[in-house]
Design a protein around this nucleic acid. Structure first.
Length: 375
DNA sequence: AACACCTTCAACCGCCTTATA
DNA sequence: GTATAAGGCGGTTGAAGGTGT
């Protein structure tokens, strides 16, 4: 990984490793001269050390040497510090090890929801200026925040199939993730559990459902056309869990409840969890179940499904025809395809919510899922 | 158990900025 | 004003550990 060739390449480009003795003047004080002599000695020693510099992971012994030296002499002048401490490392390497790992006040471990929220907020303000962001998170290093962003946040952008710098992703972050995080923080402060809330009805997830697995081959219709043996699917990352609604249930209310004491499934990450569901109360609220073909999703006029990224509302007679061959499609595909329309405009609806909806079509089972991504 | 794949994060690279003479 | 050294920063890498098959 850390070959000598890369070392030499780096040193060749280095801005500060060439001789500086020609810059001395005769007007320097004796103190300055001592400093200069020390610097020259350091420099010479560093040139020798270049050939046997250590790279890669730090050992406990090296950590101890660096920590002890800094506790006795303080930080700064990293190149000479490295030599004085007896470390065969570059000054840069020592500095990085100290600032990112050994420093006593460095905080490590899980990024809290509060910190996540702050990172999202600050990133929207400063962009990839990690050190700037780190200034607002005591104990957190720019490196850690950068890693968090790349491994967690960008992962979710990938899941959404959009670029992390795209408007869609930024809007999703601001309109969906950040409010959800704020809710979680508030819930934690209140001592209540976070809940999965149906964005349309405001009902909360019923934790008493029977999630006993149902065979994948079961031919059922999730859109409310079948009255029996209906199945619910909950997505947890890539693992699907199925839930069977009690036979006695005549409506979808067994999936959603008004109770505020129910608890949502555990989040699959610090940032978010996904939930697949299908339209709640669909059957009971539709004018006629027989109108639900595999192409058209009709739902009650008093319900509005809003795109959080555009603020547009989904047409009630939206036509899904032509998407059956795609396992997963996104709203922007609907829009660009032109076979469906979004109506309304941003912020025009008082019933607009901040949920992000995705659609999953399983042609083999004739099932339409709506995915509400919750954060 | 073994292997493949995925995720995390410490450490490095290279460029830019700042400090110093 | 210029040259050089050092510090700082964002991007990238790859080893290590975790997870799935």
């Amino acid at each position: 990984m850390y070959s000598s060739s890369t070392t030499m390449n780096n040193n060749r480009r280095s801005t500060g490793d060439s001789s500086s003795s020609s810059t001395m003047t005769t007007t320097q004080s004796s103190s300055d001269n001592e400093d200069m002599m020390m610097a020259m000695e350091d420099h010479e020693q560093q040139q020798e050390d270049l050939h046997d510099l250590r790279r890669g992971p730090w050992t406990d012994e090296e950590d101890l040497l660096l920590t002890n030296y800094i506790s006795n002499h303080g930080e700064g002048r990293w190149n000479s510090l490295a030599h004085a401490a007896g470390l065969k490392r570059t000054g840069k390497s020592c500095r990085l090890r100290w600032l990112n790992y050994l420093r006593p006040d460095v905080r490590r471990g899980n990024i809290t929801p509060e910190e996540q929220l702050m990172i999202l907020e600050l990133h929207s303000q400063f962009g990839n200026r990690w050190s700037k962001i780190a200034q607002y998170l005591p104990g957190r290093t720019d490196n850690e925040i950068k890693n968090y962003w790349r491994t967690r946040v960008q992962k979710h952008a990938k899941q959404l199939r959009c670029d992390v710098n795209s408007k869609l992703f930024k809007d999703t972050m601001r309109n969906v993730w950040m409010p959800r995080l704020a809710e979680r923080i508030q819930a934690a402060a209140d001592g209540t559990s976070p809940q999965t809330t149906n964005a349309i009805t405001g009902h909360h997830f019923n934790n008493n459902l029977d999630f006993t697995s149902v065979a994948e081959s079961t031919n059922i219709n999730e859109m409310g056309m079948s009255n029996t043996n209906r199945r619910r699917s909950i997505k947890s990352e890539d693992n699907y869990i199925t839930a069977k609604v009690p036979a006695s249930s005549s409506t979808a209310d067994s999936l959603w409840t008004n109770s505020v004491t129910t608890q949502a499934p555990s989040p699959v990450s610090d940032l978010t969890y996904d939930q697949y569901q299908y339209y709640p109360n669909f059957e009971s609220n539709c004018e006629s179940t027989t109108t639900q073909t595999s192409d058209t999703m009709n739902y009650p006029a008093d319900y509005i499904m809003t795109s959080p990224s555009t603020g547009y509302n989904l047409n009630h007679d939206f036509n899904f025809q032509g998407y059956t061959t795609s396992s997963s499609v996104h709203e922007q595909q609907y829009m660009s395809n032109g076979s469906g329309n979004w109506s309304g405009s941003s912020n025009s609806s008082t019933t607009q919510d901040n949920s992000l909806w995705d659609y999953l079509w399983n042609p083999n089972q004739d099932i339409m899922f709506l995915q509400q991504q919750q954060f």
